[in-house]
């Protein structure tokens, strides 16, 4: 039983990271139908920021610095991607463009950091373990779970309770109508794109001590984030949270129970959701399934 507790905690930590990654992807897709295939590359930029700054461990201050640097890099990348995709009207072209950016960024990272697997140490102050129900568990992962909870509450308050959140939800539902109210939706879009990319890059730093950094990680993370968005429903904060928690659990508990089928289980879960609820578990209201 205690083994499953550890798996469930691992799943929660993974779910927290996936929520941070998938949120931006989901909101941007909901707002402008742009599937940002460079989202995984933005995550990887964050992971390599961690490699550059805190690879061998170090103080908490350096780690926080890495988080801030990754957030800044992510925001700049996201803003740039928003500007690029806005100038191009067709969805397929936008997808190709972001794919091109993803490949370029991944190649540049590979040139700069090499192709080996980098591991990243958790900050010394939180690198230890605690005993949870008789099992030792890394403090750092508990902090990642805490981060996920704080992020979920903060995003909920921002999106569901603030004026800016109303504008974001309305833009997801009917962007031309928001423009007709005198709101520059282009700026809303750049802001959400930038903030979402910043979160993905921050997740890259935070996931560093768990997943490390290596070429190809961007594609794995992008795929997981896409599954989260499909399961949760496009353009929905609650959907992204639920999807991330489900995938985190399916992955971690699946790996503990039936390790040989673990990766298959994620897509089985997605197929099941698509069969039963094609729009996802908690899609944004007013976003009909377009056939």
């Amino acid at each position: 039983m205690a083994t499953y507790l550890v798996s469930m905690l691992n799943g929660l930590a993974m779910g927290s990271l996936l929520f941070a990654i998938a949120l931006g992807l989901s909101l941007v897709f909901g707002m402008m139908d742009v599937l940002n295939l460079a989202h995984g590359a933005v995550y990887l930029v964050g992971a390599y920021v961690a490699v550059a700054l805190v690879a061998d461990g170090g103080g908490l201050a350096v780690f926080v610095l890495a988080v801030l640097a990754a957030a800044a890099a992510g925001a700049v990348l996201g803003g740039g991607l928003a500007a690029l995709t806005r100038a191009i009207p067709h969805h397929l072209d936008q997808a190709l463009l972001t794919l091109g950016v993803a490949l370029t960024v991944a190649e540049l990272l590979s040139v700069a950091f090499g192709n080996e697997v980098h591991s990243i140490a958790a900050p010394a102050a939180v690198a230890g373990s605690v005993t949870v129900a008789g099992e030792t568990y890394p403090v750092y992962r508990l902090l990642v779970i805490g981060f996920g909870m704080v992020l979920a509450v903060a995003v909920y308050v921002l999106v569901e309770r603030s004026q800016l959140g109303s504008v974001i939800r309305a833009t997801v539902a009917d962007r031309p109508m928001v423009s007709a109210l005198g709101i520059n939706t282009g700026r809303v879009l750049v802001g959400v794109f930038g903030a979402g990319a910043a979160l993905a890059a921050v997740a890259g730093v935070l996931a560093g001590p768990i997943l490390g950094a290596q070429p190809g990680l961007d594609e794995r993370v992008l795929l997981l984030a896409l599954v989260v968005v499909v399961i949760g429903g496009l353009g929905s904060v609650r959907g992204a949270l639920l999807g991330a928690l489900v995938i985190g659990q399916v992955q971690a508990v699946g790996a503990a129970l039936v390790p040989e089928y673990a990766s298959f289980l994620i897509f089985a879960a997605m197929a099941l959701v698509l069969l039963l609820r094609p729009a996802g578990l908690l899609p944004a209201a007013g976003t009909a399934v377009r056939v």
């Binding site: 309305a170 539902a173 009917d174 109508m177 423009s179 109210l181 520059n184 209201a285 007013g286």
Partner: peptide, 22 residues
Amino acid sequence: AHIVARNGVAIVPQGRRVFAPL
């Protein structure tokens, strides 16, 4: 549209288009 709106034009569109999630 946002510039036109700021110049004092407002629309009650066909189909109403109230924001469903708000």
